[in-house]
Protein backbone atom coordinates (compact mmCIF):
# COMPACT_ATOMS: atom_id res chain seq x y z
CA UNK A 1 0.00 0.00 0.00
CA UNK A 2 1.49 3.30 -0.98
CA UNK A 3 1.80 6.54 1.01
CA UNK A 4 -0.70 8.12 -1.28
CA UNK A 5 -3.30 5.58 -0.61
CA UNK A 6 -2.78 5.95 3.15
CA UNK A 7 -3.23 9.63 2.87
CA UNK A 8 -6.42 9.28 0.89
CA UNK A 9 -7.96 7.05 3.55
CA UNK A 10 -7.00 9.48 6.29
CA UNK A 11 -8.52 12.43 4.41
CA UNK A 12 -11.70 10.51 3.78
CA UNK A 13 -11.99 9.70 7.47
CA UNK A 14 -11.53 13.36 8.47
CA UNK A 15 -14.12 14.51 5.94
CA UNK A 16 -16.59 11.94 7.18
CA UNK A 17 -16.05 12.98 10.78
CA UNK A 18 -16.45 16.68 9.87
CA UNK A 19 -19.67 16.06 7.98
CA UNK A 20 -21.13 14.19 10.91
CA UNK A 21 -20.28 17.11 13.23
CA UNK A 22 -21.89 19.46 10.78
CA UNK A 23 -24.97 17.21 10.73
CA UNK A 24 -25.79 18.03 14.35
CA UNK A 25 -28.68 20.57 14.08
CA UNK A 26 -27.96 24.15 14.78
CA UNK A 27 -29.89 26.07 17.44
CA UNK A 28 -32.22 27.81 14.96
CA UNK A 29 -32.63 24.69 12.92
CA UNK A 30 -34.12 23.13 16.06
CA UNK A 31 -36.14 26.27 16.83
CA UNK A 32 -37.52 26.27 13.27
CA UNK A 33 -38.75 22.71 13.81
CA UNK A 34 -40.19 23.84 17.16
CA UNK A 35 -42.12 26.63 15.43
CA UNK A 36 -43.42 24.17 12.90
CA UNK A 37 -44.36 21.70 15.72
CA UNK A 38 -46.37 24.41 17.52
CA UNK A 39 -48.79 24.31 14.60
CA UNK A 40 -49.51 20.70 15.69
CA UNK A 41 -49.98 21.25 19.41
CA UNK A 42 -51.95 24.51 19.36
CA UNK A 43 -55.47 25.07 18.12
CA UNK A 44 -56.36 28.34 16.46
CA UNK A 45 -59.93 29.56 16.25
CA UNK A 46 -61.35 29.98 12.72
CA UNK A 47 -61.39 33.69 13.31
CA UNK A 48 -57.58 33.61 13.22
CA UNK A 49 -57.73 33.09 9.43
CA UNK A 50 -58.93 35.53 6.81
CA UNK A 51 -60.55 32.82 4.77
CA UNK A 52 -60.84 29.04 4.90
CA UNK A 53 -58.28 28.78 2.16
CA UNK A 54 -55.91 31.20 3.80
CA UNK A 55 -52.43 29.78 4.42
CA UNK A 56 -50.90 29.17 7.80
CA UNK A 57 -48.53 32.04 8.29
CA UNK A 58 -45.43 31.91 10.44
CA UNK A 59 -44.03 35.37 10.88
CA UNK A 60 -40.52 36.34 12.01
CA UNK A 61 -40.49 39.81 13.55
CA UNK A 62 -37.51 41.97 13.10
CA UNK A 63 -34.24 40.08 13.17
CA UNK A 64 -34.42 36.78 11.29
CA UNK A 65 -31.96 34.24 12.70
CA UNK A 66 -33.35 31.34 10.68
CA UNK A 67 -32.20 31.98 7.21
CA UNK A 68 -34.13 29.51 5.05
CA UNK A 69 -34.41 26.90 7.80
CA UNK A 70 -38.06 27.71 8.47
CA UNK A 71 -38.81 27.10 4.80
CA UNK A 72 -36.88 23.85 5.10
CA UNK A 73 -38.85 22.75 8.14
CA UNK A 74 -42.25 23.52 6.58
CA UNK A 75 -41.63 22.46 3.04
CA UNK A 76 -44.41 20.30 1.76
CA UNK A 77 -46.25 20.40 5.10
CA UNK A 78 -49.82 21.53 5.67
CA UNK A 79 -51.98 22.23 8.70
CA UNK A 80 -55.60 21.25 8.25
CA UNK A 81 -55.07 21.61 4.50
CA UNK A 82 -53.44 25.00 4.76
CA UNK A 83 -50.01 25.45 3.28
CA UNK A 84 -47.32 27.14 5.29
CA UNK A 85 -46.19 30.69 4.49
CA UNK A 86 -43.08 32.19 6.10
CA UNK A 87 -43.22 36.00 6.40
CA UNK A 88 -40.76 38.52 7.58
CA UNK A 89 -42.64 41.02 9.65
CA UNK A 90 -41.26 44.56 9.98
CA UNK A 91 -43.86 46.38 11.92
CA UNK A 92 -46.37 45.51 14.56
CA UNK A 93 -49.36 45.98 12.28
CA UNK A 94 -48.30 43.24 9.97
CA UNK A 95 -47.87 40.91 12.88
CA UNK A 96 -51.60 40.48 13.25
CA UNK A 97 -51.83 38.43 10.01
CA UNK A 98 -49.55 35.69 11.42
CA UNK A 99 -50.69 32.65 13.23
CA UNK A 100 -47.29 32.21 14.83
CA UNK A 101 -45.03 35.20 15.44
CA UNK A 102 -41.38 34.69 16.43
CA UNK A 103 -39.49 37.46 18.08
CA UNK A 104 -35.73 37.18 18.44
CA UNK A 105 -34.37 37.97 21.88
CA UNK A 106 -32.74 40.98 20.41
CA UNK A 107 -36.16 42.40 19.62
CA UNK A 108 -36.86 42.71 23.37
CA UNK A 109 -37.30 46.49 23.19
CA UNK A 110 -40.06 46.22 20.68
CA UNK A 111 -41.65 43.28 22.25
CA UNK A 112 -44.18 45.18 24.32
CA UNK A 113 -45.29 47.24 21.35
CA UNK A 114 -45.80 44.18 19.18
CA UNK A 115 -47.76 42.48 21.91
CA UNK A 116 -49.89 45.51 22.41
CA UNK A 117 -50.48 45.81 18.68
CA UNK A 118 -51.61 42.23 18.52
CA UNK A 119 -54.18 43.10 21.17
CA UNK A 120 -55.21 39.52 22.05
CA UNK A 121 -55.50 38.55 18.50
CA UNK A 122 -55.14 34.85 17.87
CA UNK A 123 -51.47 34.92 17.10
CA UNK A 124 -49.20 32.58 18.98
CA UNK A 125 -46.30 34.69 20.17
CA UNK A 126 -42.97 32.94 20.59
CA UNK A 127 -39.61 34.37 21.65
CA UNK A 128 -36.23 32.97 22.53
CA UNK A 129 -35.89 35.49 25.32
CA UNK A 130 -35.70 33.45 28.53
CA UNK A 131 -38.03 35.77 30.40
CA UNK A 132 -40.37 36.52 27.54
CA UNK A 133 -43.12 34.83 29.39
CA UNK A 134 -43.09 37.31 32.13
CA UNK A 135 -43.38 40.01 29.41
CA UNK A 136 -46.58 38.48 28.08
CA UNK A 137 -45.13 36.37 25.29
CA UNK A 138 -47.01 33.13 25.14
CA UNK A 139 -44.13 30.70 24.64
CA UNK A 140 -40.54 31.37 25.56
CA UNK A 141 -37.81 29.18 24.16
CA UNK A 142 -35.35 29.13 27.03
CA UNK A 143 -31.96 27.50 26.79
CA UNK A 144 -31.19 25.36 29.81
CA UNK A 145 -28.50 22.67 30.23
CA UNK A 146 -27.70 23.06 26.58
CA UNK A 147 -31.25 22.23 25.69
CA UNK A 148 -34.15 24.31 24.56
CA UNK A 149 -36.95 24.43 27.09
CA UNK A 150 -40.46 25.77 26.63
CA UNK A 151 -41.95 28.20 29.07
CA UNK A 152 -45.62 28.85 28.47
CA UNK A 153 -47.65 31.83 29.65
CA UNK A 154 -51.02 30.08 29.70
CA UNK A 155 -52.89 33.26 30.55
CA UNK A 156 -51.66 35.01 27.43
CA UNK A 157 -52.61 32.10 25.25
CA UNK A 158 -56.04 31.83 26.86
CA UNK A 159 -56.49 35.57 26.36
CA UNK A 160 -55.72 35.11 22.68
CA UNK A 161 -58.30 32.27 22.45
CA UNK A 162 -55.61 29.78 21.68
CA UNK A 163 -55.79 26.25 23.03
CA UNK A 164 -52.43 24.77 23.84
CA UNK A 165 -52.35 20.99 23.90
CA UNK A 166 -51.90 19.44 27.31
CA UNK A 167 -49.15 17.32 25.79
CA UNK A 168 -47.22 20.49 25.04
CA UNK A 169 -47.94 21.83 28.43
CA UNK A 170 -46.62 18.52 29.91
CA UNK A 171 -43.20 19.03 28.52
CA UNK A 172 -43.26 22.79 29.13
CA UNK A 173 -42.76 25.00 32.09
CA UNK A 174 -45.77 27.13 33.03
CA UNK A 175 -45.04 30.80 33.59
CA UNK A 176 -47.53 32.28 35.96
CA UNK A 177 -47.63 35.83 34.62
CA UNK A 178 -50.41 38.09 33.48
CA UNK A 179 -51.16 38.42 29.85
CA UNK A 180 -49.70 41.33 27.97
CA UNK A 181 -51.81 44.50 27.98
CA UNK A 182 -53.07 45.20 24.51
CA UNK A 183 -53.43 48.58 22.84
CA UNK A 184 -51.19 50.66 25.11
CA UNK A 185 -48.05 49.70 23.21
CA UNK A 186 -49.37 50.90 19.82
Amino acid sequence: MGVLTRLTVLVAAVVLLASSVCAAPSEYQVKAVFLFNFSRFVEWPDSAFVSPEAPFVIGVFGYDPFGDQLEEATRGETVNGRPFVIRRVRNARDAADCQILFMHRTEEPRMNAVLAALDHRSTLTVSDLDVAGQRGVMIALATQDNRIRLRVNVNSARAAHLTISSKLLRSAEIVDAPAAQGGDGA
Binding site: V30, F34, R147, L168
Partner: peptide
Protein backbone atom coordinates in the same frame (compact mmCIF):
# COMPACT_ATOMS: atom_id res chain seq x y z
CA UNK B 1 -48.48 11.15 25.38
CA UNK B 2 -44.94 11.22 24.18
CA UNK B 3 -45.58 13.20 21.02
CA UNK B 4 -44.84 16.57 22.64
CA UNK B 5 -41.73 15.19 24.28
CA UNK B 6 -40.47 14.12 20.91
CA UNK B 7 -41.70 17.20 19.15
CA UNK B 8 -40.01 19.50 21.54
CA UNK B 9 -36.98 17.32 22.22
CA UNK B 10 -37.66 16.78 25.88
Amino acid sequence: NSTAALAFDN
